[in-house]
Computed example of a mutant assay.
Amino acid sequence: MMLHHQIKVVQALASALTEGGRGSNGTAFPKQPEQPLKLYEFEGSPFCRRVREVMTLLNLDYEVYPCPKGGKKYRPQVKELGGKLQFPFLVDENTGDHLYGSQQIIHHLFKHYGKSGKTPRRYAHYPKIPFVAFAGTLLNGARGVWVKKKIKNRAAPEQLLELWGFEASPYTRIVRSTLTELELPFIFHNVAKERWQDQGLAKLRLKPGKYVPLKGGKREKVLALMGENIQVPYLVDPNSGAHMFESDDIVHYLQRQYG
C-alpha cells in the first residue's frame, strides 16, 4: 500500500512539473468574495486545471462540486443551471454570473478579484488545445477523471468537507482526485506560497529555523489553525469531527467513510 501511494506521489509531482510551477504561488492578501464561489469541475480536466491555477494565484477559497465523467450528483445541476454539460462551470453569486469556458472564467476572476482588474498576459491567451495540461493528466494516471464505479450510491454529506492545499501540491492533488472520484463536495482553502520563505516542504523549507509566515498574510491565519507549521493537505470533516494531515491517511479515511 505504501509503495502504491509513493507511485501516486511521483505521478502527481510529474504532473505539477509539466505546468512549470503554476499553481504554487499567490498573493498574501486575497480579495475574497463575500459569497463563496462555486466551481463545478473535475480534477483530471486540463481546462479545469487552468482555472484552479488562477484560483491559487489569487489565493481564493471556493466550493468544489466534483463532476467526474459518469457522475450523477452534480452534472445534472450544471445542465440545469447553465443549459449544457461543459466544464469548468463557475457560479458567482456576488456578480450573478454563470460562466462556462476556462478562459472566460479566468478573465472574470482577474476582473473582480485581481488587484488591477486586468488579466496578466501570461493568463490571457491559452492555446485552444491544452497539450501541456493534458500531458499532466496522463502523467497523473488520469486520476480524477471518472467516477468510482464501485462506490455505494450515498447522498452527499450534510456539511461540506474542508480541504487546505494549493493546486500544484502533489499530495493535495492525490486527495482532490479521490474527492472527485467519490463525488464529494468540499470547500477548498488555498494556501498559496506567498514569498520565498514559504518554499519547500513543511519540514524542509529553504529558510532554516522556525517557520514564520508573512505578518498579516493569509498564511498567518492558517498557521493559527494548524499549529507551529503549515502542512498540506489538511482535511476537516465537520460531519465526523475528523481533522487530518497526510494524503495517504486522508485517502484511506475518505474511502472508508464515503466509499
Score class of each variant (00 low, 15 high):
Y65N: 05
L201E: 15
E162L: 08
L13N: 15
A142Y: 14
K115W: 00
Q104N: 15
L85D: 11
R195G: 06
L3W: 15
Y65G: 06
A135Q: 14
G96W: 01
F166E: 00
L160K: 06
P46H: 02
K31N: 08
M226G: 02
S169N: 06
S169G: 03
L214M: 09
G21P: 05
N140I: 09
A135D: 13
V51N: 00
N59V: 00
C48K: 04
G96F: 00
Y62V: 08
V191L: 02
E228A: 13
P130G: 02
L81I: 10
D248C: 12
Y258N: 00
Q103R: 09
C67R: 01
G165R: 05
L99A: 02
L109G: 01
R256A: 13
Q6R: 11
S116D: 08
Y123S: 01
V64A: 03
E93P: 10
I129E: 14
V236R: 14
D249T: 10
A28Q: 05
T95Q: 12
E167Y: 07
P127E: 11
R52Y: 05
E228R: 14
E93Y: 05
N140C: 11
K111T: 08
F186P: 08
L204R: 15
G82V: 07
K149I: 03
E63V: 02
L39W: 01
H243E: 15
E41F: 14
E158Q: 15
L39K: 00
V10Y: 12
Y211M: 04
G165A: 06
E63Q: 05
Y171W: 09
R154M: 15
K31H: 08
L58P: 00
D198N: 07
G209C: 05
L99Y: 00
M1I: 13
Q103D: 11
P170N: 09
L201N: 13
A168L: 08
V51R: 00
G71W: 14
V191N: 04
R205E: 04
Y253H: 09
K150E: 15
L206M: 14
Q231W: 06
L139V: 03
L179N: 04
T27S: 00
K215V: 11
G227A: 03
K149S: 06
